[in-house]
Design a protein around this nucleic acid. Structure first.
Length: 357
DNA sequence: GATACGTGGAA
DNA sequence: TTTCCAAGTAT
């Protein structure tokens, strides 16, 4: 690892700050969460923006703030309603953790978002990045908010080849940012680095010729900007084949079930899924009876589709089925009308399946 | 420290 | 088609 001391030798911090901030003041993007410094709005935006593009977040942000305009509104909402507002955005534990944390803010902090690192980081879903983002953007504190943009920009500017996939590398960049951050306008400094990373110092084909800090960039000077940052590869994901059953009862209602309250897509709803190795109608019917206590008649396969996650892929084979005999004791499966489906949060693959109902 | 955790868009 | 990526966090 390169120490921050050697990285910052001969680096003109004041001049870098000045050029970066002047560029930001003239070119900053007009984003809905930049209208004010309301800590709750900043918080919601930062959670939504985790691993998610700005263009994707914008409509969700508007809708979410309309439905839950304050910490009190979000604290009082049903979790299902919150998940429904998050539907399609992904990483759903963000939504559940956010509501959990907001309820803690209402209970322990009188509804005021904490303005110190200790209390902020103790809240569910707030890690080192989000803590720094809230402290700097909402409270004007000179705290680092190191995300992928910051690591990419500083990897190039300071020619640092540490693997940004490693946790310890983030600590290095946090230490560097503490040295480099503007104390006059820490909020703008952090957002400027992120805007620069998103619009100029992009992962592929960075626009070095129009970069406001080109003259400070060792990566550019050495012609290695395309090689930085160093990032180790993710592993290939695993395939998981399922039969998905669109089951109708005699009233024409449709069977859905809620997923477990932890792990993948926690607490979301889905059409019943049967893990399969090979396609066998009897195997599926029998497995379903053993699991749910319901006899079904499997109909014809309607379609298949893939649902690609970060770490695995569902191979979904969609079947119609008819409820034959119901000897259930528990109500794990619920039958609802097509209209009622609209109030349940589903993963995107199951939203797409409604076309085959 | 490695892995789980979503989704849609770009090259 | 495949791969990578995007304002990370929890465990």
């Amino acid at each position: 690892m390169i120490g921050k001391e050697s990285s910052l030798q001969n680096f003109n911090i004041k001049a870098f700050q000045k050029d970066l901030l002047e560029w930001y003041y003239a070119n900053k993007r007009d984003l809905p969460w930049r209208k004010d410094q309301d800590p709750y709005r900043v918080w919601v935006s930062e959670i939504m923006l985790q691993q998610t593009k700005v263009d994707t977040v914008i409509p969700y942000f508007h809708n979410f703030l309309e439905k839950f305009p304050t910490v009190h509104a979000l604290a009082a909402a049903d979790e299902q309603e919150v998940l429904k507002a998050w539907e399609g955005l992904g990483y759903y534990s963000r939504a559940r953790n956010l509501q959990h944390a907001v309820r803690e803010v209402v209970e322990h902090y009188g509804g005021q978002v904490p303005d110190n690192p200790k209390e902020l980081e103790s809240l569910k879903g707030i890690g080192s990045y989000t803590k720094g983002a809230i402290l700097s953007i909402a409270f004007n504190q000179p705290e680092p908010a190191v995300d992928g943009n910051v690591m990419r920009v500083f990897s190039r500017v300071l020619n640092i080849d540490d693997d940004i996939a490693l946790p310890k590398t983030k600590k290095l960049f946090e230490a560097i940012t503490r040295e480099v951050i503007s104390h006059e306008d820490p909020s703008s400094f952090n957002q400027a680095i992120m805007d620069l990373g998103a619009t100029i110092c992009t992962p592929k084909s960075p626009a070095c010729l129009i970069c406001p800090v080109q003259e400070y960039c060792q990566g550019y000077e050495l012609g290695v900007e395309q090689q930085l940052p160093i990032k180790s590869k993710a592993k290939k994901n695993k395939k998981m084949p399922y039969a998905v059953l669109l089951i109708r009862n005699e009233q024409g209602e449709i069977a859905i079930e809620q997923r477990p309250d932890d792990g993948l897509l926690a607490n979301l709803w889905q059409f019943p899924m049967v893990p399969i190795q090979e396609m066998s109608v009897e195997l599926i019917e029998n497995w379903f009876y053993a699991q749910y206590g319901m006899r079904i008649n499997l109909g014809e396969k309607q379609a298949d589709l893939k649902h690609v996650f970060s770490h695995l892929t569902w191979e979904l084979n969609i079947f119609h089925a008819k409820l034959e005999h119901d000897t259930r004791k528990e109500e794990k499966i619920v039958f609802v009308t097509e209209d009622e489906l609209n109030s349940y949060p589903f993963p995107v693959s199951h939203l797409k399946m409604r076309e085959y109902l």
